[in-house]
Computed example of a mutant assay.
Amino acid sequence: MDFDFTEDQESLRDAVRRFVEKDYGDDQRRAILKAGGFSKAAWDGLVGLGLTALAVPEVHGGLGFGPVDAMVVMEELGRGLVLEPYAQAALVAPAVLAHAAGEVQAEWLPRIAAGEALLVLAHQERAARYRLDVCQTQASSDHRLTGHKSVVSAGSNADAFIVPAQADGGIALYLVTRDAAGVTLRDYRLHDGSAAAELHLAATPATLLVPAAHGLAVLEQAVDIAIAAQAAEAVGVMDRYVALTVEYMNTRKQFGVAIASFQALRHRIADVKMQLELARSMSYFATLKLNEPADARRRALSQAKVQLGQSMRFVGQQCTQLHGGIGVTDEYVGSHYFKRLTVMEMQYGDTMHHLGEVSRRMTDTAGVFA
């Protein structure tokens, strides 16, 4: 199988990398952290690159690019620790809206492509424990929602939310605008500094996107897209953190020599590099499986999340330890890479959750049982 990227994909990578290096350096990112974890100027920079149009169909003013192009973008955003919820707004939201009625698509997809509307998925509930089929938010017959969603990306910076709710004996997907009656948001920041919020709905009017007959299947697809995007982002985060660690080891001296010359530390960084490459291969695997049938796709994405979780934890912990005391200081950028890896390991289902999902979906016996 050919894993080489096309010339257009490499050009896309270079454009995003230049944006990150020029407009999202450490100083800019620290200013965004102080301002609450979201920057309208940085978001406008992503819009200016055309990235919000990436996954929107051409008929609605988008570029109509595929999962591999999205993976390329996410890797570079990961390298720069970009806080804005690009994957949620530009990859997940269009995928859900593709199942909505034509008039809803015509209203929202061009706005997403143009960067005029930021939509995020609000699906997590406290009692769900990462399960997508557990939903306590209720929808009335006239599409009014009552319930509570947790850890909603972007928080008050979002223009609208995609909300699963119980309706007609199943889970339907609705669109709720931020300024709708009955919406209450409590903003806070995650461990990595990114913006999030608790979303409370009280008889809030909503627009039906996907009826209950297909809502759960579309929600699962949306979360799988988010997992694949996060896998690519994690590869970018780890790749940059490993490079920072190697650079530090080549400059930090003990006993008059660089610590990179110590055999024990060289062995540790070799193990780190191996985990990084395992994560990279599983990121490719996850992206390439997005268009598979639901059962194969769900199993593949859980497999990828298990490997990514193991790799993120190992790479983050080892690179931080190889830095010594400076690795845990807020002033050093490496600690922010560690924080981001820690947060990502918990999003969309932690490692243990997806290990259970892989086990539940295994049907092959490898000849062990008749």
Rank of each mutant, 00 (worst) to 15 (best):
Y248T: 07
T6Q: 05
E107A: 14
A35Q: 15
G215Y: 06
T204G: 00
A264P: 02
R178V: 07
V368F: 15
Q9D: 03
A206N: 00
S311Q: 02
A212Q: 08
T52Y: 08
L190V: 05
A229P: 02
D364G: 10
H191A: 14
S261E: 10
F19K: 01
V151K: 12
V92R: 03
T365E: 13
D133M: 03
V306Y: 03
L308W: 07
L119A: 11
Y337C: 03
K289Q: 13
D27T: 13
K289T: 08
E125D: 09
H354N: 14
L121T: 04
P164R: 09
R129C: 11
C135I: 10
I112P: 00
H353N: 10
A286K: 00
A228E: 01
G316Y: 03
V56D: 08
H148G: 04
E75R: 12
T342Y: 15
A206V: 02
A165P: 03
T287N: 06
D271F: 08
Q138N: 09
L276Q: 07
L265C: 07
V333K: 06
V306D: 04
G147M: 02
R18P: 02
Y348T: 11
R144Q: 10
R30Y: 04
A154C: 01
A304V: 02
A222H: 00
L145R: 02
